[in-house]
């Protein structure tokens, strides 16, 4: 493979409370015979088994270069903290392939790989993955969205949107390069309210699964930061009590702040990728500042020897104009 491309869609689970580990595992059971990887440390995280989807179509290229490719895209879903759901579609392209399509069994034994018919126009396809697929072209975003819709079709406890939050899309492409000694995040761009793009360069020993896991982790943390920025914009200091800022900020403290753990499941070989983001734009630096800001403005339960917890909560709610 000479390049990998993917798209991650990230959103809040539409449930009143975070899902428990067993509920998350049921949600992500894409293949009954393969386990959902459920992990409790250092935070709650569940990852579905990867599911291949067969494709035989043109690869996306922004300049009209036509290249047909055959193979499979891996789609995979995850839930972090019982709260944030992600759907990911990704594939890797080989530098060249035969002139005609091979028997399907050949592609089935290479999950997550597409082979071009002929030579791969590497640069055009890399740009195409970041631009997204046009009509009839491979569109990883649609495959990811399809999986997200499927996962959310499952029965959920107390289905409701606890808070209007952003839904983000991260399109990424990673190129293997002979001259790359360490993995490098060449560019991370906020393209708009929802869309982000990332371009990576990798040494030959970078495993595709780990690269995809990094991109999902990047998408998750970008979503957390985007959400926090949106919440603070919606609930600026001095907002009128009827805006319910106290309740919203409390919710953010309870449900989201503890999810910030960039790179904790990352393959060590890819650690330099996060370091770059920490330097510019300073992901964790911004997060910590905003999180502290949210905490400072969040009404705390009143600690009083003579009241029980629920009274404390009510006292706290009244003090901050907590809507009943």
């Amino acid at each position: 493979m000479v390049l990998l491309g993917g798209e991650v869609r990230t959103r809040l689970l539409p449930t009143a409370r975070p899902l428990r580990a067993a509920e998350t595992a049921r949600l992500l059971e894409l293949r009954p015979d393969e386990p959902v990887h459920v992990s409790a440390r250092p935070n709650a995280h569940a990852l579905s088994p990867p599911r291949p989807v067969g494709v035989d179509c043109a690869l996306p290229t922004p300049d009209g270069t036509r290249v047909r490719a055959v193979g499979t895209v891996l789609s995979q879903a995850s839930v972090t903290g019982g709260r944030v759901v992600q759907a990911h579609a990704r594939t890797g392209a080989t530098a060249a392939g035969p002139d005609g399509r091979r028997p399907w069994g050949h592609y089935l034994t290479r999950p997550g790989v597409v082979e071009p018919l002929g030579k791969l126009p590497e640069g055009a396809v890399a740009r195409g993955f970041l631009a997204g697929g046009g009509p009839g072209e491979l569109d990883l975003g649609l495959i990811a969205q399809r999986l997200l819709t499927e996962v959310l079709r499952h029965p959920l406890p107390d289905r409701q949107e606890p808070l209007p939050t952003p839904r983000t899309r991260l399109r990424w492409v990673a190129l293997w390069a002979a001259d790359a000694e360490a993995p490098r995040l060449e560019r991370f761009t906020i393209e708009g309210d929802e869309l982000r793009t990332a371009r990576l360069r990798l040494p030959y020993d970078a495993p595709p699964d780990a690269v995809a896991a990094f991109c999902a982790d990047l998408a998750l943390h970008d979503w957390l930061l985007t959400t926090l920025i949106a919440v603070l914009e919606e609930h600026p200091p001095g907002a009128p009590p009827e805006a319910g800022s106290g309740r919203v900020l409390r919710w953010v403290v309870d449900q989201l702040l503890h999810l910030w753990m960039p790179g904790v499941r990352l393959d060590e070989r890819l650690a330099p990728l996060w370091h770059a983001l920490e330097r510019t734009p300073g992901f964790t630096c911004q997060w910590q500042a905003l999180a502290q800001h949210v905490r400072d403005r969040t009404p705390r339960p009143v600690r009083c020897r003579w009241t029980n917890e629920s009274e404390a909560g009510e006292a706290c709610g009244r003090r901050a104009g907590y809507p009943k």
């Binding site: 293949r31 291949p52 067969g54 494709v55 035989d56 179509c57 579609a89 399509r101 649609l142 399809r146």
Partner: peptide
């Protein structure tokens, strides 16, 4: 086993 079906895509299939 049904969960392991990965359909052979006819030409023009973009996975959706």
């Amino acid at each position: 086993v049904a969960g392991r079906l990965v359909e052979s895509p006819p030409p023009g299939s973009n996975g959706v």
